[in-house]
Amino acid sequence: MKVPITYTPIHPVDLVTDGETSAAGITPYRGTSLSKLRNEMGPDDAPSCTTTSTTATTATQSCAEVIALAPQDYLYDAAEAGTWKVAGVYGRTTSDNDDSGDHLSFNYGYDMWGGLGTTQVKRAAKLTTDATPSRCGRGGPSPSRARSLAPTGRPASTPATRASRSPSGSRPRAPPPTRRSRR
């Protein structure tokens, strides 16, 4: 799953981010602080940024990046869904690959600022159901013998039962049996 993110950083005008020796971006994280991270996720590639304005001391950019998110790698359980904090990240490298003096050097610096905002991470949920009618199995009621009950618990009213009722709503009583006289 790829999650596109856009943001607007404001940084010192002399801070250069070329994507090769220096880079800046954001990283969503979970935890009480940056030193106590429970989980974090970051982009695989450098963000694409365009400078929108500058002053004598600051530059404002509009940036977009994509975080490739594999739920099995970042969302360990359902509790990982919810609000994540967002941190700003800046990394720089310097290297001296000229080994003429039989010496190589490589330095890497990494800065991270927390509390820059929050974002919602949601787990995908898929609800499926089978609402197709099924046949009654052996031993179950047959459709011709099944009775439907009205919400009152009494048998539901059908045209045949409505016709046999009196206007007061009660069923008519059968006449009492007649006695035959003996002669």
Rank of each mutant, 00 (worst) to 15 (best):
T17A: 15
P141E: 09
Y76Q: 15
R180A: 13
A81I: 02
G88I: 00
A68M: 02
Y76V: 15
C49D: 08
V89E: 07
G140Q: 03
P176V: 06
M41I: 14
A68Y: 01
A68H: 03
R182K: 06
R138H: 03
K122F: 13
G82R: 08
Y90N: 03
S148T: 10
D96V: 03
E20H: 11
T129Y: 10
R30Y: 06
V16Q: 08
D18K: 04
A81H: 02
D99K: 02
G140V: 03
P12Y: 05
V86R: 00
A146V: 11
T52W: 00
R92H: 03
I10G: 08
R92A: 11
G117H: 09
W113N: 09
T60H: 08
V89H: 14
V86A: 01
T158K: 04
G42C: 03
W84G: 00
V3P: 01
T54K: 15
S164C: 12
R162E: 12
D96C: 03
H103K: 15
A24D: 06
G31W: 05
T128D: 13
P71F: 10
M41R: 04
P151L: 08
I26W: 00
A64E: 14
V16C: 07
R165V: 07
T118Y: 12
I26S: 00
P4L: 03
V3S: 05
Y108A: 11
